[in-house]
Design a protein around this nucleic acid. Structure first.
Lengths: 359, 359
DNA sequence: ATCGTTCTTGTAATCGTTTACAACCGACAC
DNA sequence: GTGTCGGTTGTAAACGATTACAAGAACGAT
């Protein structure tokens, strides 16, 4: 006994397929007709085939959100926001993960081109011409949560990293920290370059020079630890500890301190490009006996759930991931509604969530 | 200029639609035919319509993983494992989130019944007859990562919570902790009941009685904090601190200690049903000045990425989420291949990942 | 009684693929 | 020259829904 189709239901109910379809879609029909069809549907356990339906009507009522790494908590914030908006609009949201490579991203956009979903939100880590081309050629609407050139002719919604960096730097400054280091993610990613630039500007605007700058292999916790270790190497002994008892287990002595030639200054604050990186760093700080925030203040970025879960809770720049998710979803829905509207480029402003990782 | 279809390509290449389809699917054709078709495809930027294709061939080459809460790090572990297996098999994985309610879960299974995917892995928090019925009626294969009755006639793969609890209890015991409390998630969920039962058994087997048992509203960080507060209320002053300087800021004196009547015993260890709950609890412990693991040891469950990210890193029962994900995916693929095989019920064994939240 | 109107229902075309089947073509053996 | 055989290619029928269009029914007005 095979799965019932609309034809089977029609036969069972003794009516035509058109009538079945009409009843199922709530078009006007007589009381009796509705009753007969519904009974047949019930009896056969009929469930319409989504593929056939969407082939005919041209819509799937599914929307896709593609993220690079499901383990990154910033995406859960976005995901929640997107989900809320699209499900309120009667769409089902599905999430796929692309990994960090741009080629996979391109493959996804290409593959999505026909039939898997009515629209797509992507938040690409890396962008190249192929990706832009595939977005432009994609015949389902795409909105980019991130930074692509205006020439791509696509709705975008992005964060204001430079402003966020400024908030972080000024907060630290106000708390009396001046020896600020930067723990970035990969420079060849979109957020990586934006944050590097923002950090440099923010420091310059306040007349500061970074005491150190390291680059993690990617935006993950493990990479954060590794980069944190690199950042700390060679400067674990220094004037940071008020009690002067030094820090590292190894405890190798050294001049340290600012201005000492041939040796990096010891930071009294680190800004990380990401909450995961920040937390990774904090583990390394603890490992060498530095206390947060007493010895070193730490500021993360994204203000994800991890920021409040970490210990100490992490002061973090809120780059508006929830709002970006919400508005990305809204842009997508609007464009599905009307494909001719001119692409918008929205920038959302950051705020700072102060927690206990800064004094 | 509308999107090209196979007919358009055929016209452009001066061949029949069948030939186009054959070339696209790699069926035998002459050199020249292949060449002409490919040129036309290239030129028109043709992308096949997934809906139409899957309508005809009966497969979508998509698999769905439905999880209750994307914010729960245990699911990212599972997700990664599932993704790896299914993508190696040529499927695309999509993830949807259902929320904690069983009705949404049922709706998902029902809706998935026709056409959205070739198979479904669900990990339901709550199970009722409706859900089981919908799974049985679903005409795409379903595998359940969790516990449903064998009568459901479905492949399942589940953790061994009781054994996991035993590992946790015995580890604590071995470290000299005997006043063990339990921070559970909602009792009306599948994991909630399993863990409650497992905890009770494990304690009994070791001749211990729980000093406290609280139930969080759900398996989230926020709920963990709240339940942690509840657990700690009224017993924040006690003999736990070795230095005897009491604990809470308020520092109210009290008899505390074991056996004191009218007053709960002060735990020297807490097992949480979940890493998120454990981390929430640790925040509350810190808030009242109790140190982990010196004053109170904490054991989480799931051994998710959060366990190593938390501070101190969390000793956690590894319930095999990665393996469960992997094997769930394998079961699903096997069943897609052959729907007649008798349902398997796999149990994966837990291990303990010892970190620094226990002495 | 006839006509027009409105409302309901059925027939058949359509969406964009795949694929069973038949037609065709050239080669080869008799 | 004809029949057979392999191999390519084309025609047309699916897959399972929606929907334009036409036909029929009911009903009141003329």
């Amino acid at each position: 006994m095979s799965r019932p189709t609309v034809a089977g239901v029609a036969r069972a109910a003794g009516v035509s397929v058109a009538s079945v379809s009409r009843v199922l879609n709530g078009l006007p029909a007589t009381e009796e007709m509705v009753e007969r069809v519904q009974r047949a549907v019930e009896e056969l356990g009929y469930v319409p085939d989504a593929r056939a339906r969407s082939l005919k009507v041209g819509r799937t009522f599914q929307l896709t959100l593609a993220v690079a790494d499901v383990g990154n908590p910033v995406y859960v914030t976005m995901m929640r926001a997107v989900e809320e908006v699209v499900s309120a609009a009667g769409y089902r949201l599905v999430v796929t993960t692309t990994g960090p490579d741009v080629v996979d991203e391109v493959a996804l956009v290409r593959g999505m081109a026909r039939g898997y979903a009515d629209g797509l939100v992507i938040s690409p880590l890396r962008v190249d011409d192929d990706l832009i081309k595939s977005i432009r050629e994609c015949d389902v609407p795409v909105v980019v949560a991130g930074n692509v050139p205006a020439s791509a002719g696509v709705d975008t919604i992005r964060a204001n990293s430079p402003k966020g960096m400024l908030l972080a730097v000024e907060h630290l400054l106000q708390k009396g920290r001046r020896r600020i280091a930067f723990l970035n993610g990969p420079r060849d990613t979109v957020p990586g370059t934006a944050r590097a630039k923002g950090f440099a500007e923010a420091m310059k605007a306040n007349g500061l020079r970074p005491v150190a700058e390291v680059e993690a292999a990617d935006f993950t916790f493990a990479a954060g630890r590794e980069a944190g270790r690199e950042l700390l190497s060679g400067l674990t002994a220094g004037p940071n500890r008020a009690d002067g008892r030094g820090a590292a287990a190894g405890g190798r002595a050294g001049a340290g301190g600012r201005g000492t030639k041939g040796r990096k200054q010891v930071p009294d604050a680190v800004i990380a490009a990401n909450d995961l990186l920040a937390v990774g760093l904090m583990h390394e700080l603890a490992a060498v006996g530095l206390e947060v925030p007493k010895d070193v203040a730490v500021v993360g970025m994204d203000d994800s759930e991890l920021a409040e879960q970490s210990f100490p809770p992490l002061t973090s720049v809120n780059l508006g991931s929830a709002e970006r998710g919400r508005r990305a979803a809204e842009l997508l829905l609007a464009r599905i509604d009307d494909d001719t509207r001119t692409p918008r480029r929205i920038v959302v402003q950051p705020t700072l969530s102060v927690r206990r990782s800064t004094p």
